[in-house]
Nucleic acid binder design. Structure first.
Lengths: 150, 150
DNA sequence: CGAATTACATCGAAGTTTGATACAAACGCT
DNA sequence: AGCGTTTGTATCAAACTTCGATGTAATTCG
């Protein structure tokens, strides 16, 4: 049985890990909302503004303003949706992609320093960690999709 | 050998997982900075304002303002540091603690729904996931401490 | 076609964050 | 003890972010 206690501890462990993992002062001063938008666009390809409001915890006017700023800064590009004259399709520009990639590279480097201090057993378990977290993400994405249809 | 590729994938997996894990619209509208401060105070006990600026990605004036607001709302309490007349010690009030706990409970519930859809093998690996993430956090905390002394 | 809906933009008000600066307590030196 | 320096917070005004309400144009559906 997977007791509540186990899950409570797992949740705490993830929370604490994230406290360290998220902290990553970026060279350019980009706030949480901005980084989240860049990450989402880099993973979910061209998206309409409304689709973004579903993932980001911002209302549509705030997102419109943020995207306008990112376009001015050359990190995001907007083009009309050929299928719907009201909508815009947002994607990362090469510069925008570079920011996401550089942050990713920083995280890889930090992870590397942590991992090299793990003992052999824990290091061997890393593959399992990756597999299970990946599955949990897939399941979460699946549940969300289902929820949207209701 | 732990190749760069493995770590890159692991970092991506964690990033994607977090995109789902972090999303948790709270009942009270508390922004990212606020939630982070509450979490840090709940985990690291009474802290001085300056110690908080080290963890939170806010400058001291922003933190002073945020803490003042949280005190007005009854989520954080301030008392003079008996060891240093210039400093204040910040801690969570019962109400503040309740917010952190209720968010934790929400995460446990979300995790539960994900975990119950894992196959037996992946579920069995959860203990390893918790252990390894916990170790990584310990190591990260240790490295940070070392860095501070330099 | 016309009414209802949807996608995004605009606006003004409220809230947040910042750099510069002020001030008081603590520290270190003699 | 005295004095200059450093450290911990507070204050301020300016810049930025976010929101709810509302506008406008494109789409959908009967």
């Amino acid at each position: 049985m997977t007791s509540d206690l186990d899950l409570g501890e797992l949740a705490t462990t993830i929370e604490d890990f994230n406290a360290y993992y998220i902290r990553l002062p970026s060279v350019r001063r980009l706030n949480f909302s901005t980084l989240s938008v860049l990450h989402t666009l880099s993973r979910k390809g061209p998206l309409r503004l409304t689709d973004l409001t579903a993932t980001e915890q911002l209302k549509q006017p705030a997102l419109t303003a943020l995207v306008a700023k990112l376009e001015r800064e050359g990190l995001v590009s907007r083009r009309p949706d050929p299928r719907d004259g009201r909508a815009v399709l947002l994607s990362l520009t090469p510069d925008g992609r570079r920011i996401v990639e550089s942050r990713h590279a920083d995280r890889v480097e930090r992870l590397r320093r942590l991992v090299e201090r793990l003992d052999a057993g824990d290091r061997a378990a890393l593959a399992d960690v990756a597999r299970v977290l990946g599955r949990l993400t897939e399941i979460a994405a699946g549940l969300e999709e289902k929820g949207e249809r209701s």
